[in-house]
Amino acid sequence: MGINWKELADNAKSRSDIYGLMSTVFREEPSGGLIKEMRSSRLSEIFTDLGVELGERFYTNPESKVVEELAIEYTRLFIGPGPHISAHESIFCEMDGDTGGLWGVKTVEVKKFIETTGLDYGKEFTGLPDHISVELEFMQKLAEWETDMWLQQDRKRAEHCLTVQRKFLEQHLFCWVNQFCDAVMNEAEIPFYRAMAELSKQYMEFERQSIAIDTAA
């Protein structure tokens, strides 16, 4: 049986796009454009189909109001001041010999991991290297690169890329993404982030299974 390069590429591209969506959602307060897109029939139907409940008001309130509400919710959930979810791996993951806190041993590991692949942190990026959105964006980029390799019918490099993805997931994202999503689901006051966290959690679970299958294939 010959290799279906197109299907493998599409699959990788899909994964890349989902990581991209999740990264966008957790990176910062949603823009008006993103809200508009997420309320569009295309996505809203998929969300409905998946049972992703973004809440009545998400669809009915004026866009500017949704943006404002979500900005406040995002700040309350992820920025502070006061109790908040610090969306960084070093905060969630225990590491032998490290007593935790921002810019921990895990932060350094993530930064090195990412930089070893030839990527750099953008000059304009002011967050910490192990922010949830960075790790998701890294996966997005890896899967995107994998897509290219499949399209070039370079099986060796594509599989190598998958190995890198699997390593990153196992060493980093899988270690904390569930806890992170649970925390968001518990603390969210309006449905948007709760739904997004649930979606992310489910997706990561799906990844956990499927990436193992992919590798076995």
Binding site: L21, G33, R42, T117, G118
Partner: peptide
Amino acid sequence: NFMKLAAGGGSALAAGLGFSQGALAGSIKL
């Protein structure tokens, strides 16, 4: 349904409506 979501997610990104600037720069040179 994951593929469906992917199509939607991709479209949102394709429309350039994600974050203005990515956290990561450059390209992967594995």
